[in-house]
Every structure is written in C-alpha cells, then in structure tokens.
C-alpha cells in the first residue's frame, strides 16, 4: 500500500504540469476573460448612460421580483459555476488522454524504465498506479480546482452586483454551490468507470508502440472505422456502421472526456424540461449521472478496459527494447 502511494505520488511529481497547473491556468484565464467581460460591460454601460444601478432600478427590480424570477438569477449563477466545470473537464480530458499515451512510453523512450525496473516493484503495481493517477488523482485535482474556480466566479459576480446596490447575499442564496460541489465530487467514481476503456486502450498503445503512440491510438480505430463504413461490414451483423463509431471509437478514445458520458443519456424533450424546472445543476445531478450504472454499455466498457489494462501489464513485463 505504501509502495502504491509513492508510485501515485511519483506520477504526480512527474505530471504536476498537467494534473495541477493545466486546470489552474485554464481557470485563471477563464476568470480573466470574465473580468474583462464585466469591465467591458461596465464601460459600455457607463458610456451609454445605462447605469442601471445608479438610480437603484436593479435593487427595485430584485425587490419586486417574485420567487420564480429569483430562481432564474440563481440558475444563471449556477450556470457560471457549471461552465467553469465544463471548461476544466475538457482540459482534464486532454490531460488524461496524453498522460495515458505517455504513461508507459515516455520512460521507455528515455530509458528510465531501466531505473524503475531496478526497484522491487511489480509491473502490475506500476501500471495500476498509473491507471489510478489517470482515473482518480487527475479528476480529483480537476474537481477541486473547478470548485474553487466556480466559487471565485460567483463571488466576482456577487461583488459586481453589490456595486450596483444589489444585496449580494440575497442573490448568492439563490445559487447552489454546495449542491454543485457535491454533485461534482460524486461524479468522480463514475468518470473512473466510464473512462476505463479509453484509459486501457491508450495505455496499451503506450506500452506497445515503438514510436508515436498517439498515431497508433488514433489511426487503428479510425482506419478500422473507415473500412467498416466503406465496406458496410457492420451490415452483416445487422448493425449500422455508426454503431462502430459510437460504441467502439468513442468509447476507446473520447471517453476520457467527462462530458462524453452526457450524450449517452437520452437528452430528449423531457429531460430538457427537467433542466428548465430544476436549473442547470440537474445536468450533473448524482441520481441522473448514476442512472448510467444501469446501462450495460458502461459495464461492457469497464470489462473491456480491464482486459486492455491486463494486456498492458503483460506487455510491460515482456517489452524488451534493445
């Protein structure tokens, strides 16, 4: 257990740039853009005499607003929270993608694999520590950063509104940062399960490729997909070729992006009306997200991911590069 902890720590040391700084820098840029937007709006408003706060119109607006209107304000703030998460989740997807591709390749390329292999650590432990770094450590850091970012954004908006005489606390009480935080934390285990086939495939390419793992990881499924689409092989199995793209291609490459699981829910008219009623946080509601556990697709993916990871462990042991 101690060894495993230190192996994960080693991954963090090596990939601090991707795991920690990439989300922080992205968040920082996002905050900066928002502040610039606010300043532009303020300047624009001042120039054109649209200072709504000056004569307390907004305050009166809020005072007159009914519960439903206030809920809309809360939804807007929640949306600010969620948008910061969405942006960081995209960054997380890229970080995990390239982390997995390099995880069992970089140390072979610079020969440091010989140093790691000179220590009494099994290949299984090594590979699993990398899987955990990709599916647990990186998402936890990303979630913590996006929570901090969301809070910061809400604070900024509340502060700006309070300059216009609106009670910031009244508005903030309409947002649900705690609910958003809990939903996000709850989503991590599901992300780990959802991303497993992609993590497995990318790590298998990483351990197998002699050069350019990225190319192999993308080319093999892409060319297979093209062949299938071209010759209509899937028709033989009574499946359309789009089945391949959604059930194989996306699951072994795109699943590292957390938002990619959203598309497998039926976002029909009904669920949109949910969003309308329950606010944007309904999108990442734990009950909604975990309904995916009932889909066989998730579990088939988990099994496929496990098989790919076992294959990666085997290959890691056997790889002899000189």
């Amino acid at each position: 257990m101690k060894t495993f902890y230190w192996l994960v720590k080693r991954e963090y040391w090596e990939h601090r740039g991707g795991f920690l700084w990439a989300p922080i820098v992205t968040g920082g840029i996002f905050v900066l853009l928002n502040i610039m937007g606010i300043i532009t709006a303020e300047v624009f408003g001042a120039r054109h005499g649209l200072m709504i706060g000056g004569n307390n119109e907004l305050t009166q607006l809020v005072a007159k607003a009914n519960a439903g209107d206030l809920a809309q304000v809360g939804n807007a703030l929640d949306l600010a929270f969620i948008s910061s998460m969405a942006i960081i989740s995209v960054v997380l997807g890229f970080v995990v993608l390239f982390y997995c591709l390099g995880s069992l390749y970089d140390d072979r390329r610079d020969h440091s694999v010989l140093f790691w292999k000179s220590l009494p650590i099994s290949d299984t432990t090594t590979v699993l520590s990398k899987v955990v770094s990709a599916t647990v450590l990186a998402p936890i850091i990303a979630v913590v950063v996006s929570i901090a970012l969301g809070m910061l954004l809400i604070m900024i908006f509340a502060l700006v509104l309070s300059f216009h005489g609106v009670s910031a606390w009244q508005l903030l009480s309409q947002a649900h940062p705690l609910r958003a935080t809990i939903s996000l934390l709850c989503a991590i285990p599901l992300y780990a399960l959802w991303a497993l086939p992609a993590v497995g495939w990318l790590m298998l390419c990483s351990v197998w490729a002699r050069t350019k793992p990225f190319l192999w990881a993308v080319l093999i499924p892409a060319l297979t997909g093209l062949m299938i689409s071209w010759f209509g092989i899937m028709n033989l199995l009574n499946l359309s070729s789009s089945w391949f793209w959604t059930h194989i291609f996306q699951r072994i490459l795109i699943s590292v992006f957390p938002v990619s699981s959203l598309q497998s829910y039926n976002i029909d008219v009904e669920s949109f009306s949910h969003v309308h009623q329950d606010g944007p946080l309904a999108l990442i509601d734990p009950i909604r997200i975990y309904s995916l556990l009932a889909s066989p697709g998730l579990w088939i993916g988990v099994i496929a991911g496990a098989v790919l990871i076992i294959a990666a462990i085997r290959l890691r042991r056997a790889r002899d590069d000189s």
Binding site: W13, E14, D107, D110, H111, S112, L114, F115, K117, S118, L119, P120, I121
Partner: peptide, 17 residues
Amino acid sequence: MEQVCFIADVAVLPRWI
C-alpha cells in the same frame, strides 16, 4: 530486485526527477 541492484548506463535516471 530486493537483493539486486543495477546501473545500466548513465542516462537512465528520469530527467524530471
């Protein structure tokens, strides 16, 4: 590997460590 150590050649320590 608990009983055996090896130094393969000079370039094997990871560059980031």
